[in-house]
Amino acid sequence: MFKKLVIVLLCAMPLSVFAQYKFGTINTQEVFALMPEKATAEKTLQDLAKKYEDEFVKMREEFNKKYKEFMAQDSLPENIKARRMQEVQELQQRIQNFQEVAQGDIEKQQQQLFAPIEKKLTDAIKSVGTEQKFTYIFDLASPMPVILYHGAPSEDVTAAVKTKLGLK
Rank of each mutant, 00 (worst) to 15 (best):
Y136A: 10
Q92K: 13
G151W: 00
M59Y: 07
L167C: 05
V88C: 08
Q20D: 07
M71H: 04
T44L: 03
E55I: 09
P145R: 03
A33H: 13
V8C: 01
A19T: 12
F32E: 08
L113I: 13
E42M: 15
F18M: 11
R94I: 11
Q96V: 04
V88F: 03
F23H: 02
F32I: 14
Y21I: 07
Q89N: 04
E61H: 02
T130F: 11
E107L: 03
K4S: 00
N64I: 10
K162F: 01
H150F: 03
K120P: 07
V31M: 08
V8E: 00
A12D: 02
C11E: 01
T122L: 09
K120D: 11
K126D: 08
E37F: 01
I125D: 07
Q92F: 14
L76D: 09
V17P: 03
F56V: 14
K43Y: 11
D139N: 15
Q92I: 12
C11V: 03
Q111P: 00
D47W: 13
F2N: 11
V31D: 01
A160S: 03
T163L: 06
P153C: 03
E118H: 02
Y52N: 15
D74S: 15
Q92Y: 11
S142W: 10
L167N: 02
K81N: 11
M59H: 03
D139K: 12
A159Q: 05
I106K: 14
Q132Y: 05
T122S: 09
P116A: 01
T122C: 08
Q103P: 07
E61A: 04
F56D: 10
L140V: 10
G129N: 07
E61Q: 05
P77Y: 00
K120L: 15
D123R: 15
T25A: 05
L91Y: 03
Q96C: 04
E78M: 02
K68H: 06
R60D: 09
S154V: 02
V6P: 04
Q93P: 00
E107W: 09
T135N: 02
S16C: 06
N79L: 10
